Amino acid sequence: MHIVGTGFLARSLAPIADAHPDTVVLAAGVSWASGTSGTDFAREAALLADTARRCAADGRRLLFFSTASTGMYGNANGPGREDEPVEPCTPYGRHKLALEGQLQDSGADHLILRLGHLVGPGQPPHQLLPALLRQVRSGAVQIHRGAARDLISVADVITVIDRLLGLGLRGEVVNVASGFAVPVERIVDHLEHRLGVRVERTWSDSGAQHAIAIERLTALVPDVARHFGPAYYRPVLDTFLAAA
């Protein structure tokens, strides 16, 4: 595969970099779910347009990473599904949905993966887990009441990507997540327990809580999805802490 990008996800794809030579992976762009920069959004849209044009010209498939975050599915009535209309509730979510449409209209063979909250070594410091870990180590954590996040190991995501690309999927949108939204306070509980500390918790206004439907993912890669469950987040956090 040809990987466009040098960030966290692009580096994590190294184990399968020599596979799927018919595929271009666009692993560059806005990675901050709270981002609102019109300049950054425009830069990613231009990069996608150029990459899709090249893929259409030489017959390669383009893998694009969208989001299954609250920005995309926060307004969903029930678990967020790929085959239902979506009303994004943040600028980031609206941007990613617009890019999905841009790619679908480009004429390039493509696969769109809507990702949950990836967890793994070397992820950007502004993302959820590094930010929470810094707060726990500082002794004070601010938690949005009711907030929950679907955590998934980046190693499992790479395995899923490898399997999905091997199936030859084209023109599909697939959620890649564990299917279990974990309350943020439980994430903090686990970090406290593993680090042997107690932190002061400050509660703010209600946070976004949502679930991500993974029936399509489970049907496509049942052997990978089988180990997801309510307690899946614990070993994911342990692996993250071991690397941190």
Results as ranks from 00 to 15, higher is better:
M1L: 12
I3Y: 02
T6N: 14
A10P: 03
R11D: 13
L13P: 03
L13H: 00
A14Y: 09
A14W: 09
A17Y: 01
D18Y: 05
A19F: 09
T23Q: 06
V24I: 12
V24H: 00
V24T: 15
A28E: 14
G29N: 01
L47M: 14
S66P: 06
T67C: 08
T70V: 14
G71Q: 10
G71K: 01
G74F: 07
N77H: 13
E82G: 01
D83F: 01
E84P: 00
P85I: 09
R94T: 11
Q104G: 13
Q104H: 11
S106N: 10
G107W: 08
G107I: 05
A108V: 03
D109Q: 12
D109R: 15
L115T: 00
V119H: 02
P121C: 03
Q123C: 13
P124Q: 09
P125N: 10
H126E: 13
P130W: 05
L133I: 07
A148L: 01
R149E: 14
D150P: 09
L151V: 04
D156Q: 09
V160C: 14
V160H: 03
I161H: 06
R163T: 10
L164P: 00
L167E: 08
R170V: 15
V174K: 04
A181V: 00
V184W: 01
V184R: 08
I187C: 05
L191A: 02
R194Y: 06
W203M: 12
H210I: 12
A211I: 02
R216P: 02
L217T: 02
L220P: 09
D223L: 11
V224P: 02
R226A: 14
F228S: 02
F228Y: 15
P230R: 04
V236W: 04
L237H: 01
L237C: 08
L237V: 09
F240V: 02
